[in-house]
Every structure is written in structure tokens, then in C-alpha cells.
């Protein structure tokens, strides 16, 4: 399993994402200028402040040379994970529905949040526990989509994570914390799963997303939390 972690000017969680993914498979940084993504099984668009968050978070990064390749990678069914600024970039690139607006509290907020898993059937979540404790740190995390889009997404199971009751500090519509594409192979979420991969960090729940991705790609038998998990081949 080989993860590619995109690095834009202004990305700051790229190295942490690489280290986290490196616990589950091989992981490599992919510069924003690179256009060849051959050899990668999945792509992570990491957190940070790409291009200074100028104009709108993610608005400029969307036009980086690497993003055309990421779009093609996603169109071909490859797994693409966007975390925080990565989620914003994927929304701006129209690889995910909706947009991320300024937090309703008006502040950059850093806190641990509890998420509810709403769809455990995606390639990103089949190993996830029903509740995940992850840190969130952002100023633009209020996910929004028009009512009709939201209704269609709920119908299709595209709402993958919600903030648990009382945890939605940013004011996201319907408490949404993470969504996937209609095809299910692109996921974005605001909380930082790459910062919850070791007991020292207070939670290891972030690993379950990366392990799910590996399981989906490799279709291997993995031992997770003391339980053998049977994988399916990607796309099955």
C-alpha cells in the first residue's frame, strides 16, 4: 500500500500525514508541481494553509499542477482523502460536494471532538469504530450544501461522519464533519485523523481510516484491534 501525500506551499500537516500513513503502509510526499501519480494506491490531500488561504481556503491550490492528476486519479476510482485544508481543496476542485465556510463562532478553534460514524461501508471507514475521538483545528470548517444536495447526499450515504451531539462548534449544516463523493472513493473531513495515531496523542482512532484504506486497496487480511478483518478487493 503506497500513500502519496500532496504538499502545497503552505501545507503544514503533510509530514504528519506522511508519518501517520507510514504506520499503515508506505508513504511519500508528492510536491504540488508533480503530475505523475503512477505507483500510488491512494492520495492524501493534507491540512494546512495552502497558498496562504488567499481568496478562499483551497481556491488557489485547486489549480496547482498536481491537482489535475489528482482529479484524474479520483475519476479512475483511486482513493483520495482530504483532511481539513485538503477537504477544502477537494470541495473547491468539485471532487466533493459543498463548501467550507468560516466557523460560526468566528474563531480559529483547536479542540478534541467526538465524531459519529454514519457510513461504515465506505473504503475509508470499514475498520472505524462507531465513535471517533479526533482533534480539530480550523477557522473555516463550517460545511455547507444547499438543502437539495444535502438530501440527496443523505440518501446515498455520502454523509460519512457527523459531530456527536454538542460537538459541532463550527456550525456545519446537519452536524456534518466528513463527506464522500457519490462514487465513494473521495472522502473529506475536517478533524485531523493524522494527529490521532498513537496513544501518546490521546487517541489512535485516526489509524482506523488509514487501515480501512489499506484493506480496501489490498483486499488483505488485516488484524485490527485483535480481530481478523476480511477485506474485499478495491471496487468490489
Amino acid at each position: 500500500m503506497r500513500f502519496g501525500v500532496i504538499s502545497f506551499p503552505g501545507s503544514c500537516d503533510d509530514l504528519d500525514a506522511k508519518l501517520a500513513a507510514g504506520r499503515v503502509g508506505e508513504a511519500e510526499i508528492v510536491p504540488h508541481t508533480q503530475t505523475d501519480l503512477r505507483g500510488f494506491d491512494s492520495i492524501i490531500v493534507p491540512g494546512g494553509f495552502s497558498y496562504g488561504d488567499y481568496l478562499r481556503p483551497g481556491a488557489i491550490a485547486r489549480f496547482a499542477p498536481v491537482m489535475e492528476s489528482v482529479s484524474a486519479f479520483a475519476r479512475e476510482g483511486g482513493l483520495v482523502l482530504g483532511i481539513c485544508n485538503g477537504f477544502q481543496v477537494l470541495c473547491e476542485a468539485r471532487l466533493l460536494p459543498g463548501a467550507l465556510l468560516r466557523n460560526v463562532n468566528g474563531h480559529f478553534t483547536c479542540r478534541q471532538v467526538t465524531l459519529e460514524l454514519c457510513n461504515g461501508g465506505t473504503p475509508f471507514t470499514r475498520c472505524c469504530p462507531p465513535l471517533l475521538s479526533l482533534p480539530a483545528k480550523h477557522a473555516f470548517g463550517r460545511w455547507y450544501a444547499p438543502a437539495q444536495t444535502l438530501a440527496e447526499m443523505r440518501e446515498r450515504g455520502q454523509i460519512v461522519f457527523r459531530y456527536a451531539p454538542g460537538e459541532n462548534f463550527n456550525g456545519s449544516i446537519d452536524d456534518v464533519a466528513g463527506v464522500c463523493s457519490a462514487e465513494g472513493n473521495v472522502l473529506g473531513l475536517m478533524p485531523h485523523l493524522e494527529h490521532a495515531v498513537d496513544q501518546l496523542m490521546g487517541s489512535t482512532h485516526g489509524l482506523s481510516v488509514l487501515q480501512s484504506m489499506r484493506l480496501s486497496v489490498e483486499g488483505a487480511r488485516l488484524r485490527i484491534g485483535g480481530v481478523d478483518v476480511e477485506g474485499k478487493a478495491a471496487g468490489a
Binding site: L101, R102, N103, V104, N105, G106, R142, Y144, G171
Partner: peptide, 10 residues
């Protein structure tokens, strides 16, 4: 119709 926290703060 979309909440504008900046406007509210001002």
C-alpha cells in the same frame, strides 16, 4: 440565507 459570522461580529 447563509450565515455570515463576520457580518454578525461587525
Amino acid at each position: 440565507g447563509i450565515l455570515d459570522p463576520q457580518g454578525l461580529a461587525v
